[in-house]
């Protein structure tokens, strides 16, 4: 079944005035609705430019971008942007507004009635796991970096955008908090099935979050595929180098168990030990070494069973995966 396309890039090229090179070069790809697509690349590879072309902060040099089949250049710019959530590093919250006022930015612009706004703000604060009793009337300066980023995400989600654009949103956040935010984002996306374009230079983050990863270098797409396919068949040397640090465990560090899930029988589900579907394979491997056994039952953060992961599958990946 062909799924709906949320965003389509058609030969998209961007060259900034005064530059001798294209910051984004001849990019063509489709982003399926309801998926998380991460844009991975080193600094200066054109990730931010691609994202800012998508919400028309930058104008295209050539090519076209379509939003649900419509050329974005034909849409009124501010109305179009309100259909996209936009979250950047450091959140960019308004320091003179409370958490609630920040989250209400777009509903306010759309002139929603007051009680509907309030209701939505409370709902969003629950969604990003910020206690309204404590944080509703706080100012951004009174929050930690991680909490500010949660507000940033809630603000972007306020008017139920079908597409979220996120530019290294967790880049300036400590490792542990970042992991919490990543898990919260995955859970949230599963609940509301929106489309997310997520820029990062962190390989683990890109592979953990994504249904599909766009690997970029020098403005060009190097590979656009599922995490598993990229690991098992890197398209070229650049991708191979980016995803590997050279040791045997590389692929286990970037792939989560999600990539190797198999169907589990009722009996297995009843008796098998549980593991989160956000677990990287190296941690799952550790679990096998510790416990013994042939399989682990994979569940989501909120306890839904997704299937099982078997020791054999991990072994197979170790034996034939990367070296094709």
């Amino acid at each position: 079944m062909e799924s709906e396309i949320a965003i389509e890039y058609k030969n998209v090229t961007k060259r900034f005035a005064g530059n001798q090179y294209d910051s984004v070069k001849n990019v063509s790809l489709r982003v399926e609705a309801g998926t998380i697509v991460t844009i991975l690349g080193t600094s200066g590879s054109g990730k931010t430019t691609l994202l800012k072309l998508t919400n028309r902060i930058y104008d295209l040099t050539s090519g076209d971008i379509e939003y649900y089949g419509q050329s974005i250049s034909a849409l009124p710019v501010n109305e179009y942007r309100r259909k996209l959530g936009y979250v950047i590093q450091q959140a960019g919250l308004f320091p003179h507004w409370t958490v609630a006022e920040n989250i209400a930015t777009i509903p306010q612009m759309l002139r929603w009635p007051k009680d509907k706004i309030r209701e939505r703000v409370l709902e969003l604060m629950q969604m990003v796991e910020l206690d309204p009793d404590t944080y509703y009337s706080r100012y951004p300066r009174q929050l930690s970096g991680g909490q500010q980023q949660r507000v940033g995400i809630a603000r972007a989600l306020a008017a139920k955008p079908s597409v979220m654009l996120m530019d290294e949103p967790f880049g300036a956040i400590d490792a542990l908090t970042r992991e919490n935010l990543q898990n919260a984002l995955i859970k949230l996306q599963r609940d509301i099935h929106n489309t997310i374009l997520f820029v990062t230079h962190d390989v683990q983050e890109a592979f953990k979050l994504a249904h599909k990863v766009i690997v970029m270098d020098k403005g060009e797409i190097q590979q656009y595929d599922t995490p598993y396919n990229i690991i098992s068949a890197p398209a070229n040397d650049f991708v191979r180098k980016l995803v590997s640090t050279g040791d045997f465990y590389d692929k286990f560090r970037v792939l989560t168990v999600t990539n190797l899930i198999e169907a589990a029988s009722a009996e297995e589900i009843r008796t098998g030990p549980r593991i989160s579907d956000q677990t990287f394979l190296n941690d799952a491997l550790g679990e096998f070494l510790r416990r013994g056994g042939e399989y682990l039952i994979v569940e989501t953060e909120d306890g839904k069973i997704r299937g099982k992961i078997s020791y054999n599958k991990i072994r197979q990946l170790a034996c034939n995966g990367v070296s094709k």
Partner: peptide, 12 residues
């Protein structure tokens, strides 16, 4: 960043 996110959200 503050101005960028304001504009990115579709504020006139």
């Amino acid at each position: 960043q503050i101005i960028e996110s304001a504009e990115g959200m579709g504020m006139s």
